[in-house]
Protein backbone atom coordinates (compact mmCIF):
# COMPACT_ATOMS: atom_id res chain seq x y z
CA UNK A 1 0.00 0.00 0.00
CA UNK A 2 1.34 3.38 -1.02
CA UNK A 3 0.69 6.64 0.75
CA UNK A 4 -0.27 10.04 -0.63
CA UNK A 5 3.40 10.94 -0.65
CA UNK A 6 3.99 8.56 -3.51
CA UNK A 7 1.44 10.34 -5.69
CA UNK A 8 3.97 12.44 -7.67
CA UNK A 9 5.95 9.32 -8.52
CA UNK A 10 2.72 7.60 -9.47
CA UNK A 11 1.74 10.53 -11.69
CA UNK A 12 5.17 10.38 -13.33
CA UNK A 13 4.87 6.67 -13.98
CA UNK A 14 1.37 7.10 -15.39
CA UNK A 15 2.50 9.94 -17.65
CA UNK A 16 5.46 7.88 -18.86
CA UNK A 17 3.23 4.92 -19.72
CA UNK A 18 0.79 7.15 -21.59
CA UNK A 19 3.61 8.79 -23.55
CA UNK A 20 5.28 5.57 -24.65
CA UNK A 21 2.00 3.68 -25.11
CA UNK A 22 1.83 4.10 -28.92
CA UNK A 23 5.32 2.59 -29.29
CA UNK A 24 4.48 -0.32 -27.04
CA UNK A 25 1.26 -0.99 -28.89
CA UNK A 26 2.92 -0.71 -32.27
CA UNK A 27 5.76 -2.97 -31.16
CA UNK A 28 3.25 -5.49 -29.81
CA UNK A 29 1.53 -5.40 -33.18
CA UNK A 30 -1.64 -4.12 -31.53
CA UNK A 31 -1.72 -0.63 -32.94
CA UNK A 32 -5.51 -0.91 -33.28
CA UNK A 33 -5.51 -0.38 -29.51
CA UNK A 34 -4.21 3.17 -29.99
CA UNK A 35 -7.81 4.04 -30.72
CA UNK A 36 -8.79 2.55 -27.37
CA UNK A 37 -6.00 4.49 -25.68
CA UNK A 38 -7.33 7.70 -27.25
CA UNK A 39 -10.80 6.90 -25.91
CA UNK A 40 -9.25 6.32 -22.51
CA UNK A 41 -7.66 9.75 -22.47
CA UNK A 42 -10.85 11.45 -23.66
CA UNK A 43 -13.03 9.48 -21.26
CA UNK A 44 -10.67 10.41 -18.43
CA UNK A 45 -11.23 14.12 -19.10
CA UNK A 46 -14.99 13.59 -18.78
CA UNK A 47 -14.63 11.51 -15.64
CA UNK A 48 -12.26 13.92 -13.91
CA UNK A 49 -14.60 16.80 -14.69
CA UNK A 50 -17.51 14.89 -13.16
CA UNK A 51 -15.48 14.15 -10.04
CA UNK A 52 -15.05 17.88 -9.51
CA UNK A 53 -18.79 17.84 -8.87
CA UNK A 54 -19.38 14.50 -7.18
CA UNK A 55 -16.19 13.99 -5.23
CA UNK A 56 -15.00 17.48 -4.50
CA UNK A 57 -18.23 19.41 -4.09
CA UNK A 58 -20.68 16.68 -3.15
CA UNK A 59 -22.99 17.42 -6.09
CA UNK A 60 -24.34 14.18 -7.49
CA UNK A 61 -24.91 15.24 -11.07
CA UNK A 62 -26.65 12.56 -13.11
CA UNK A 63 -26.70 14.46 -16.38
CA UNK A 64 -23.06 15.01 -17.09
CA UNK A 65 -23.19 13.30 -20.48
CA UNK A 66 -25.40 16.16 -21.66
CA UNK A 67 -22.42 18.52 -21.75
CA UNK A 68 -20.35 15.83 -23.39
CA UNK A 69 -23.04 15.73 -26.08
CA UNK A 70 -23.19 19.50 -26.45
CA UNK A 71 -19.45 19.67 -27.08
CA UNK A 72 -19.70 16.85 -29.61
CA UNK A 73 -22.64 18.44 -31.40
CA UNK A 74 -20.84 21.77 -31.71
CA UNK A 75 -18.08 19.94 -33.58
CA UNK A 76 -20.56 17.89 -35.59
CA UNK A 77 -22.86 20.75 -36.57
CA UNK A 78 -20.01 22.99 -37.67
CA UNK A 79 -18.50 20.14 -39.67
CA UNK A 80 -21.90 19.43 -41.24
CA UNK A 81 -22.38 23.02 -42.40
CA UNK A 82 -18.83 23.15 -43.66
CA UNK A 83 -19.51 20.08 -45.75
CA UNK A 84 -22.89 21.29 -47.00
CA UNK A 85 -21.60 24.82 -47.43
CA UNK A 86 -24.62 26.15 -45.58
CA UNK A 87 -24.88 28.39 -42.54
CA UNK A 88 -26.07 27.87 -38.99
CA UNK A 89 -27.89 30.93 -37.61
CA UNK A 90 -25.91 32.98 -40.09
CA UNK A 91 -22.53 31.43 -39.26
CA UNK A 92 -20.53 29.37 -41.71
CA UNK A 93 -19.55 25.86 -40.79
CA UNK A 94 -15.90 25.21 -40.13
CA UNK A 95 -13.38 22.52 -39.38
CA UNK A 96 -10.79 24.93 -38.01
CA UNK A 97 -9.81 23.39 -34.69
CA UNK A 98 -8.68 26.66 -33.17
CA UNK A 99 -12.23 27.95 -33.63
CA UNK A 100 -14.23 24.79 -33.10
CA UNK A 101 -12.66 23.50 -29.90
CA UNK A 102 -12.79 26.78 -27.93
CA UNK A 103 -16.35 27.26 -29.19
CA UNK A 104 -17.30 23.77 -28.02
CA UNK A 105 -15.94 24.57 -24.56
CA UNK A 106 -17.69 27.92 -24.48
CA UNK A 107 -21.08 26.63 -25.59
CA UNK A 108 -20.98 23.69 -23.16
CA UNK A 109 -20.14 26.20 -20.45
CA UNK A 110 -23.16 28.30 -21.42
CA UNK A 111 -25.42 25.23 -21.29
CA UNK A 112 -23.93 24.35 -17.91
CA UNK A 113 -24.55 27.88 -16.71
CA UNK A 114 -28.23 27.76 -17.66
CA UNK A 115 -28.84 24.21 -16.45
CA UNK A 116 -26.78 24.75 -13.31
CA UNK A 117 -28.53 28.00 -12.47
CA UNK A 118 -31.85 26.14 -12.44
CA UNK A 119 -30.77 22.77 -11.08
CA UNK A 120 -28.73 24.19 -8.21
CA UNK A 121 -31.86 25.74 -6.76
CA UNK A 122 -32.60 22.23 -5.58
CA UNK A 123 -30.66 19.88 -3.36
CA UNK A 124 -29.89 16.22 -2.70
CA UNK A 125 -32.24 13.83 -4.43
CA UNK A 126 -34.05 16.59 -6.29
CA UNK A 127 -30.74 17.67 -7.75
CA UNK A 128 -30.01 14.12 -8.91
CA UNK A 129 -33.36 13.86 -10.65
CA UNK A 130 -33.22 17.34 -12.15
CA UNK A 131 -29.81 16.81 -13.68
CA UNK A 132 -31.02 13.46 -14.98
CA UNK A 133 -34.03 15.16 -16.54
CA UNK A 134 -31.99 17.93 -18.12
CA UNK A 135 -29.80 15.24 -19.64
CA UNK A 136 -32.84 13.50 -21.07
CA UNK A 137 -34.18 16.79 -22.32
CA UNK A 138 -31.04 17.44 -24.34
CA UNK A 139 -31.13 13.84 -25.52
CA UNK A 140 -34.61 14.35 -26.95
CA UNK A 141 -33.61 17.73 -28.33
CA UNK A 142 -30.81 16.09 -30.32
CA UNK A 143 -33.14 13.29 -31.40
CA UNK A 144 -35.55 15.87 -32.77
CA UNK A 145 -32.85 17.63 -34.81
CA UNK A 146 -33.86 15.98 -38.08
CA UNK A 147 -31.50 18.21 -40.04
CA UNK A 148 -28.58 16.66 -38.17
CA UNK A 149 -29.65 13.08 -38.57
CA UNK A 150 -32.17 12.90 -35.72
CA UNK A 151 -31.96 9.53 -34.02
CA UNK A 152 -29.15 8.30 -36.21
CA UNK A 153 -26.79 11.21 -35.74
CA UNK A 154 -24.37 12.33 -38.42
CA UNK A 155 -20.98 11.53 -39.84
CA UNK A 156 -18.15 14.03 -40.24
CA UNK A 157 -17.52 13.32 -43.90
CA UNK A 158 -14.48 15.54 -44.20
CA UNK A 159 -12.63 14.00 -41.29
CA UNK A 160 -11.39 15.59 -38.11
CA UNK A 161 -10.83 19.22 -37.24
CA UNK A 162 -7.88 20.95 -38.85
CA UNK A 163 -5.01 22.44 -36.88
CA UNK A 164 -1.86 24.18 -38.01
CA UNK A 165 1.14 21.81 -38.19
CA UNK A 166 -0.65 18.84 -36.59
CA UNK A 167 -2.55 16.39 -38.73
CA UNK A 168 -5.30 15.12 -36.45
CA UNK A 169 -6.35 12.52 -38.97
CA UNK A 170 -3.14 10.69 -38.18
CA UNK A 171 -4.15 8.49 -35.29
CA UNK A 172 -0.89 8.74 -33.38
CA UNK A 173 -0.82 12.51 -33.73
CA UNK A 174 -4.42 12.63 -32.58
CA UNK A 175 -3.62 10.45 -29.59
CA UNK A 176 -0.84 12.80 -28.50
CA UNK A 177 -3.05 15.80 -29.11
CA UNK A 178 -5.71 14.34 -26.80
CA UNK A 179 -3.06 13.35 -24.28
CA UNK A 180 -1.70 16.90 -24.25
CA UNK A 181 -5.17 18.34 -23.67
CA UNK A 182 -5.86 15.75 -20.98
CA UNK A 183 -2.59 16.63 -19.24
CA UNK A 184 -3.39 20.34 -19.34
CA UNK A 185 -6.87 19.69 -17.96
CA UNK A 186 -5.53 17.40 -15.25
CA UNK A 187 -2.97 19.98 -14.14
CA UNK A 188 -5.69 22.63 -14.16
CA UNK A 189 -7.92 20.48 -11.93
CA UNK A 190 -4.99 19.61 -9.69
CA UNK A 191 -4.42 23.30 -9.05
CA UNK A 192 -8.12 24.00 -8.77
CA UNK A 193 -8.83 21.51 -6.00
CA UNK A 194 -5.85 22.77 -3.99
CA UNK A 195 -6.74 26.40 -4.53
CA UNK A 196 -8.64 28.66 -2.20
CA UNK A 197 -11.72 28.05 -4.30
CA UNK A 198 -11.13 24.32 -3.97
CA UNK A 199 -11.10 24.74 -0.21
CA UNK A 200 -14.48 26.45 -0.39
CA UNK A 201 -15.84 23.53 -2.43
CA UNK A 202 -14.60 21.05 0.16
CA UNK A 203 -16.22 23.10 2.89
CA UNK A 204 -19.52 23.15 1.00
CA UNK A 205 -19.38 19.39 0.63
CA UNK A 206 -18.89 18.88 4.33
CA UNK A 207 -21.11 21.55 5.84
CA UNK A 208 -23.03 23.60 3.33
CA UNK A 209 -25.35 25.12 5.94
CA UNK A 210 -22.44 26.76 7.71
CA UNK A 211 -21.30 28.70 4.66
CA UNK A 212 -23.82 31.54 4.83
CA UNK A 213 -22.78 32.47 8.33
CA UNK A 214 -19.17 32.88 7.29
CA UNK A 215 -20.20 35.05 4.37
CA UNK A 216 -20.11 32.57 1.52
CA UNK A 217 -23.05 31.98 -0.79
CA UNK A 218 -22.82 28.28 -1.69
CA UNK A 219 -25.02 28.70 -4.76
CA UNK A 220 -22.52 30.91 -6.58
CA UNK A 221 -19.57 28.66 -5.77
CA UNK A 222 -21.51 25.57 -6.85
CA UNK A 223 -22.58 27.26 -10.07
CA UNK A 224 -18.99 28.14 -10.93
CA UNK A 225 -17.75 24.58 -10.46
CA UNK A 226 -20.78 23.26 -12.35
CA UNK A 227 -19.83 25.48 -15.30
CA UNK A 228 -16.18 24.46 -15.12
CA UNK A 229 -17.11 20.78 -15.01
CA UNK A 230 -19.60 21.23 -17.84
CA UNK A 231 -16.96 22.94 -19.95
CA UNK A 232 -14.56 20.08 -19.23
CA UNK A 233 -17.14 17.52 -20.31
CA UNK A 234 -17.84 19.60 -23.43
CA UNK A 235 -14.15 19.54 -24.27
CA UNK A 236 -14.12 15.77 -23.89
CA UNK A 237 -17.21 15.52 -26.10
CA UNK A 238 -15.60 17.68 -28.77
CA UNK A 239 -12.56 15.40 -28.77
CA UNK A 240 -14.76 12.30 -28.88
CA UNK A 241 -16.64 13.65 -31.89
CA UNK A 242 -13.29 14.15 -33.61
CA UNK A 243 -12.16 10.72 -32.55
CA UNK A 244 -15.13 8.80 -33.92
CA UNK A 245 -15.93 11.35 -36.66
CA UNK A 246 -19.51 10.68 -35.73
CA UNK A 247 -22.04 12.42 -33.50
CA UNK A 248 -25.35 11.03 -32.26
CA UNK A 249 -27.88 11.59 -29.48
CA UNK A 250 -26.62 8.38 -27.90
CA UNK A 251 -23.70 10.38 -26.51
CA UNK A 252 -26.09 12.18 -24.15
CA UNK A 253 -28.17 9.16 -23.18
CA UNK A 254 -28.63 8.87 -19.43
CA UNK A 255 -26.79 5.56 -19.33
CA UNK A 256 -23.72 7.46 -20.54
CA UNK A 257 -24.04 9.73 -17.53
CA UNK A 258 -24.29 6.54 -15.50
CA UNK A 259 -21.12 5.20 -17.12
CA UNK A 260 -19.26 8.36 -16.18
CA UNK A 261 -20.42 8.01 -12.59
CA UNK A 262 -19.33 4.38 -12.58
CA UNK A 263 -15.89 5.35 -13.80
CA UNK A 264 -15.60 7.92 -11.01
CA UNK A 265 -16.66 5.54 -8.24
CA UNK A 266 -14.63 2.67 -9.68
CA UNK A 267 -11.49 4.79 -9.53
CA UNK A 268 -12.19 6.54 -6.25
CA UNK A 269 -14.27 9.66 -5.71
CA UNK A 270 -12.70 12.83 -4.42
CA UNK A 271 -9.39 12.12 -6.13
CA UNK A 272 -8.13 13.15 -9.54
CA UNK A 273 -6.07 10.13 -10.43
CA UNK A 274 -8.92 7.83 -9.35
CA UNK A 275 -11.26 8.64 -12.24
CA UNK A 276 -8.35 8.23 -14.65
CA UNK A 277 -7.66 4.75 -13.30
CA UNK A 278 -11.40 4.14 -13.35
CA UNK A 279 -11.57 5.06 -17.02
CA UNK A 280 -8.62 2.78 -17.67
CA UNK A 281 -10.21 -0.21 -15.97
CA UNK A 282 -13.63 0.50 -17.45
CA UNK A 283 -12.32 0.50 -21.00
CA UNK A 284 -10.11 -2.48 -20.24
CA UNK A 285 -13.16 -4.43 -19.10
CA UNK A 286 -15.17 -3.25 -22.09
CA UNK A 287 -12.37 -4.25 -24.43
CA UNK A 288 -11.25 -7.50 -22.88
CA UNK A 289 -14.13 -9.00 -20.89
CA UNK A 290 -15.82 -10.09 -24.14
CA UNK A 291 -12.56 -11.63 -25.33
CA UNK A 292 -11.98 -13.35 -22.00
CA UNK A 293 -15.49 -14.77 -22.00
CA UNK A 294 -14.96 -15.92 -25.56
CA UNK A 295 -11.72 -17.68 -24.61
CA UNK A 296 -13.46 -19.31 -21.67
CA UNK A 297 -16.04 -20.65 -24.06
CA UNK A 298 -18.77 -18.53 -22.48
CA UNK A 299 -19.89 -16.91 -25.69
CA UNK A 300 -23.24 -16.04 -24.19
CA UNK A 301 -21.51 -13.62 -21.83
CA UNK A 302 -19.30 -12.26 -24.55
CA UNK A 303 -21.96 -10.00 -25.92
CA UNK A 304 -23.56 -9.43 -22.54
CA UNK A 305 -20.51 -8.67 -20.43
CA UNK A 306 -22.47 -6.05 -18.54
CA UNK A 307 -24.45 -8.79 -16.81
CA UNK A 308 -21.24 -9.41 -14.91
CA UNK A 309 -20.31 -5.77 -14.69
CA UNK A 310 -23.57 -4.80 -12.93
CA UNK A 311 -22.97 -7.01 -9.90
CA UNK A 312 -19.30 -5.96 -9.82
CA UNK A 313 -20.45 -2.37 -9.60
CA UNK A 314 -22.86 -3.21 -6.78
CA UNK A 315 -20.10 -4.98 -4.88
CA UNK A 316 -17.77 -2.01 -5.30
CA UNK A 317 -20.43 0.36 -4.02
CA UNK A 318 -21.27 -1.84 -1.05
CA UNK A 319 -17.80 -2.94 -0.02
CA UNK A 320 -15.07 -0.89 -1.67
CA UNK A 321 -16.26 2.68 -1.61
CA UNK A 322 -12.74 4.09 -1.91
CA UNK A 323 -12.36 2.44 -5.31
CA UNK A 324 -9.07 1.61 -6.96
CA UNK A 325 -7.48 4.62 -5.35
CA UNK A 326 -8.25 3.15 -1.95
CA UNK A 327 -6.70 -0.14 -2.97
CA UNK A 328 -3.43 1.50 -3.94
CA UNK A 329 -3.14 4.48 -1.64
CA UNK A 330 -3.74 4.95 2.02
CA UNK A 331 -4.84 8.47 2.68
CA UNK A 332 -2.83 10.46 5.13
CA UNK A 333 -4.43 11.72 8.31
Amino acid sequence: MLSDKHLPAFYGLGALILVVLPWILTAADSSYLISTATRLVIFAIGAVSLDLLIGYTGLVSFGHAAFFGVGAYVVGILAFHNFEETTFLGFDGTLTGLVVLPLAILISAVFALIIGALALRTKSVYFIMITLSFGQMLFFLFVSLEAYGGDDGMMMFEGRNVLPILDLNDRITFYYFCLAIFTAFFVFCHRLVRSKFGRVLAAIRQNEDRMTSIGIRPYTAKLLIFVIAGAGAGLAGALMANHTEFVSPGLTHWTKSGDLMIVVILGGIGTLIGPVMGAFVFLLLEEFLPIIFHELGMDLLKEHWRVVFGPILILIVLFAKTGLYGLIFRREG
Binding site: R191, L192, R194, S195, K196, F197, R199, G215, I216, A221
Partner: peptide, 16 residues
Protein backbone atom coordinates in the same frame (compact mmCIF):
# COMPACT_ATOMS: atom_id res chain seq x y z
CA UNK B 1 -13.41 32.43 7.33
CA UNK B 2 -10.49 34.78 6.70
CA UNK B 3 -10.61 33.87 3.01
CA UNK B 4 -14.30 34.65 2.82
CA UNK B 5 -13.99 37.99 4.59
CA UNK B 6 -11.08 38.95 2.33
CA UNK B 7 -13.32 38.25 -0.68
CA UNK B 8 -11.12 35.46 -1.94
CA UNK B 9 -13.79 32.80 -2.39
CA UNK B 10 -13.31 32.47 -6.14
CA UNK B 11 -9.52 32.39 -6.27
CA UNK B 12 -9.04 29.42 -8.55
CA UNK B 13 -5.31 29.71 -8.97
CA UNK B 14 -4.19 30.76 -5.50
CA UNK B 15 -2.90 27.70 -3.69
CA UNK B 16 -4.72 27.51 -0.38
Amino acid sequence: VLQSLNNQVFRIFAKA
